[in-house]
Design a protein around this nucleic acid. Structure first.
Lengths: 255, 255
DNA sequence: GGAATAGTGTCTCTTAGACACTATGCT
DNA sequence: AGCATAGTGTCTAAGAGACACTATTCC
């Protein structure tokens, strides 16, 4: 770079809020209790190159510096794998944090991403040189921790984006297996949304089959059912590619 | 900064897509023709400090380098004022562009923002040292220009965000005067959205008064009317603070 | 009266929401 | 049979969409 008349940042990082929904079994033929959780790492004393780590001992979002030749997005993919052993997840950028004093090391710009991990995908998470511990926390737990940098703010914002995307898009599909039963979908939605049309069984079971982005699963021309969460076999559904669009000028509203 | 083990970007910039809706009068007592336009600047040969400017002569989004002690957001406000003389507008961040080869000068990270400018606010726009020309373009015109850097992509994305926010939020209010008539709102929405419930007069005029984020304007206890666009006086409305929320699991959908 | 914009009356069909009811299969 | 989950029947009230109609004002 020839022209240095302007000032350049001291660092460019990517942080990732990894969300999952855990299922706690309530016994056979019962739907499990689902909870939204976020994965955080405990920052170790040194990074994997032997340098002292800032904010060691505090809980933080996985993430780190973007390398040259990389976009923040690619860095997020790489760091997620490096720090947690988690791979092949959809990453979505949702914000940028560039306040000059957010990091004591200098002017560090952070890209915030969120990711939905199927609970199973997190099973092979591991400790790394950068993280002395990795754990899942509920939203309430996470916001009470002593968090590094401005990660509390980032997590707050991430939660808001998850809720918004859950209501406005078919995001829920990333929390579910390919084929699922309506009570599973209901459980996922209820971890984040609070709406009578979802919480009321009669309403939800009647409405769901008409949703254009859901379709029933068939096998040999017969509707495919599962009794994994109930004694009565329940219809299996899957998401199709339909991208719903809503508008405040068309529909009934909630404020 | 003591630790330089990682690589730092060569620059950090803010770009702003300034949108406005122009009104072309069709004569007295007629609603004007409204069009969504974007303000672009023609990059001059030198910047205001006398340095050679990259991509001179091409059309580009207003924007520039973020200064130390500044966030990208604050830089967007400052550059908008510097380059266009436009002030006091709401700026919204919508994306980040950090591909390593997007700018020939090096690894330049750009924050993309959009802004809604009332047409009147753009009236005092001016040429500056950085911009040899400033003009408004329709979306079709803008996407046919020879645009600097990856600004075509950024503009494409900005259009998508404007459409989304227009449908999902009360964004339309920033394109309208404080008090407005339903046909004005309809005109604004139709520049971006295409929906029978908006385009059909009977449907739109019946639905609008029930929208919770709109309220009728009164004066001395009487409904306040205007005949600026019609011979028959039309009711004036304003937006209130209601923030509508929609969900794909509740409402009728469009794909 | 004619033209143009701003609405309203009325009808039909669909949907939301509530509540009671049936269906299935394990123990 | 009892229990828990998965639905359906039926009613009511509200809303969407279509089409014709009225209302106001200027010329």
């Amino acid at each position: 770079m020839k022209d240095k008349k302007f000032t350049i940042p001291d660092g460019y990082t990517s942080d990732i809020a990894v969300f999952t929904i855990t299922s706690e079994s309530q016994g056979e033929y019962k739907p499990p209790i689902k909870k939204l959780k976020i994965m955080l790492i405990k920052r170790s004393k040194q990074d994997h190159e032997g340098n002292q780590n800032m904010e060691a001992g505090k809980w933080a979002l996985p993430g780190g510096f973007v390398r040259p030749g990389e976009t923040a997005f690619q860095a997020a993919e790489r760091k997620l794998l490096e720090e947690t052993g988690v791979d092949r997840l959809r990453i979505k950028h949702f914000g940028i944090y560039d306040s000059p004093n957010r990091d004591p090391r200098g002017w560090i710009i952070s890209n915030a991403h969120y990711v939905i991990a199927n609970e199973a995908a997190l099973k092979n998470r591991k400790q790394t040189y950068d993280a002395s511990d990795i754990q899942l926390f509920t939203m309430e737990e996470a916001l009470e921790l002593d968090l590094a940098f401005d990660h509390r703010q980032i997590i707050d914002d991430a939660i808001w984006f998850i809720k918004k995307d859950m209501a406005l898009t078919t995001l829920a599909k990333h929390f579910l297996p390919e084929e699922f039963v309506l009570s599973e979908l209901q459980g996922v939605l209820l971890t984040v949304l609070d709406d009578p049309s979802i919480a009321t069984d009669a309403a939800f079971f009647r409405k769901s089959p008409t949703l254009p982005f859901l379709e029933v699963v068939s096998e040999n021309g017969k509707p495919k059912k599962s009794n994994r969460y109930s004694k009565t076999p329940a219809q299996l559904y899957r998401f199709n590619e339909f991208q719903p669009i809503v508008s405040v000028y068309r529909n009934k509203l909630k404020g």
